[in-house]
Design a protein around this nucleic acid. Structure first.
Lengths: 150, 150
DNA sequence: TATTGTTATACTCTATAACTATA
DNA sequence: TATAGTTATAGAGTATAACAATA
């Protein structure tokens, strides 16, 4: 069943594949748990990500936000439409460039995300409680070294 | 900005959160690269996962497949509809239970996935080339220990 | 001309829940 | 009644392109 001629290369590739498989599976399961918990508070993952990002970078443009969230500007536009109608965020025209909007949380949006961040963090903390401090550090260090280029 | 009263707990939680943030970001970027590469061959990530899973477990039922792929049975149903019309998979009624289908690759489907697996593997190998053998093993070991329960 | 955001199209993926046929 | 698969609905994300207003 070997797909490559050189055993060393083959073994190395298999290790990479099993690491990737684990990485993907673990991440998906955690994402799902987070999503389920957020859903109980009436919020989607995409909306949470947007609020949480905005929480620490108010005043960004829509393009900048799209870059941070790794989605298209059309996507951001639709998301913002829905979230603006929920009164969570607001677009304010940039005073120096009439083409761009600056994004801000409403008072309601800030209260909402400040309530949800601990909920999110609790799920994550619970998941990572299966690692001790050394293992947690190891994981962070090795992920830091995993240089992926978008 | 501390959201918790005890510094030790707080620090621990921050480490978990930064590990999770890295885990999620790295995974998403790699997923996107894989998806882009597969798209050039006219296949989506979900379809690839289905074919790759079926490649090594022909004869499973739709429910079993849903379990392996961590998605709902309704989802699998729609996916299979599309992939059956592409002549990649086929449903065969179970001879002993008229309620269930057994899933198989067509000849075309098998050729397709056998062509795409190396494409997928190459992307993954390239990404993980930024880790040396020891780091790769460290990553696998620590992910193994990260016990998540769906 | 280039850029920001908007709109439109079309498709894929996802979960949920109600439905059917069978066991 | 329980299970396997189907269908309907709704929301999310993606890609692309055309478009208006502004720079």
């Amino acid at each position: 069943m070997a797909r490559r001629p050189f055993p060393i290369v083959e073994q190395r590739a298999e290790h990479a594949l099993s690491a990737w498989s684990l990485l993907l599976r673990r991440t998906m399961v955690v994402q799902r748990q987070v999503a389920r918990e957020l859903a109980r508070h009436g919020m989607s993952l995409a909306q949470f990500d947007l609020l949480a990002t905005l929480r620490f970078s108010e005043g960004v443009t829509q393009q900048e936000l799209a870059g941070k969230l790794l989605v298209s500007k059309g996507n951001i536009c639709g998301l913002l439409d829905r979230m603006q109608s929920e009164r969570w965020v607001e677009r304010r025209p940039d005073p120096t460039d009439a083409r761009t909007n600056r994004l801000f949380l409403t008072v309601n949006g800030r209260r909402c995300i400040d309530h949800l961040l601990p909920v999110h963090d609790a799920v994550v903390s619970a998941v990572f409680s299966s690692l001790n401090d050394r293992e947690l550090k190891e994981l962070r260090d090795v992920l830091e070294k995993l240089r992926v280029s978008g």
